[in-house]
Amino acid sequence: MVEEAKGTRPAEKVYSEPEIIAKLEKDLPHWRYENGWIRRKYKTHGWKSTLMVINTIGHLAEAAWHHPDLKASYAWVEVLLMNHAAKGVTDKDFDLAAKIESVVQWQPGQEAGSLEGTPQTDQRFAYIKYDN
């Protein structure tokens, strides 16, 4: 893949607050808009799970070449997305948020197939506090 020369890419659309709120309500209902960022807090069952979520988000962000800000504590990770280059929320933010959401909220045990997912009732193995 050939890199484009700096400044030759068309400017990305920066969404207005009402547009952002409408897109979140429609496509990412667990995300919210606050202080110029789209945000989502994932609750975990502890530090080990928190680190696994951070590493998952890190992998997705690096592969996408679009990097969120992260806040973390013992049992939660908060993802904050805003396109720094565009100085606002763009399609890159919505697309990465959707990818993060689909991977972090994936529950293999709820699908048909051989993957059973982590046992949520055994605290030694519980991972994410899923939304449903």
Rank of each mutant, 00 (worst) to 15 (best):
P119D: 12
S114V: 13
Q110A: 15
P108H: 00
G113R: 06
W106V: 13
Q105T: 14
K87T: 05
E116F: 14
W106N: 13
R124N: 10
A98L: 13
G113N: 09
Y130E: 06
T118M: 14
L80I: 01
G88H: 05
K129E: 07
T118N: 14
D91P: 03
D95V: 09
L115W: 11
S102D: 15
V103K: 12
Y130T: 02
K92S: 09
A112M: 12
H84K: 10
T121W: 03
P119Y: 04
A98C: 05
Q107Y: 02
Q123V: 11
A112T: 13
K99H: 00
N83R: 09
G117S: 07
L96Y: 00
T121Y: 06
F94N: 03
A112H: 13
V79P: 00
G117I: 12
Q110C: 12
V79F: 02
A112D: 15
Q110S: 14
Q123A: 15
Q107E: 08
A98T: 09
K99L: 13
S102Y: 00
V77C: 09
L96R: 02
L96P: 04
Q107V: 10
Y127N: 11
K87N: 12
Q123W: 11
E78R: 08
T118D: 12
L115T: 06
R124H: 09
N83C: 15
Q107F: 04
G117F: 06
G109D: 05
P108I: 07
Q105K: 10
G109C: 13
A97G: 08
L80M: 12
Q105N: 12
N83A: 15
R124T: 14
W106C: 12
A98G: 09
E116D: 10
N83H: 11
E111K: 05
E78L: 10
Q120C: 03
A85Y: 07
Q107R: 15
V103S: 08
K129L: 07
T90P: 04
T118A: 14
H84V: 09
H84I: 04
D122R: 08
L80A: 03
A86L: 07
K87S: 03
P108G: 01
S102H: 05
P108L: 03
T121M: 04
K129D: 06
P108Y: 00
L81V: 06
G109V: 14
T121I: 05
V89I: 10
D91N: 10
K99P: 00
E101Q: 11
T90C: 08
V79W: 02
Q120P: 03
T90R: 02
Y127P: 00
F125H: 03
Q120K: 05
I128F: 13
G113D: 13
P119G: 02
F125R: 01
K92D: 06
Y130Q: 08
K129P: 03
E116A: 14
N83V: 09
L81K: 02
G88V: 00
K99Y: 00
D93N: 05
Y127M: 10
K87C: 01
I100E: 04
K99S: 04
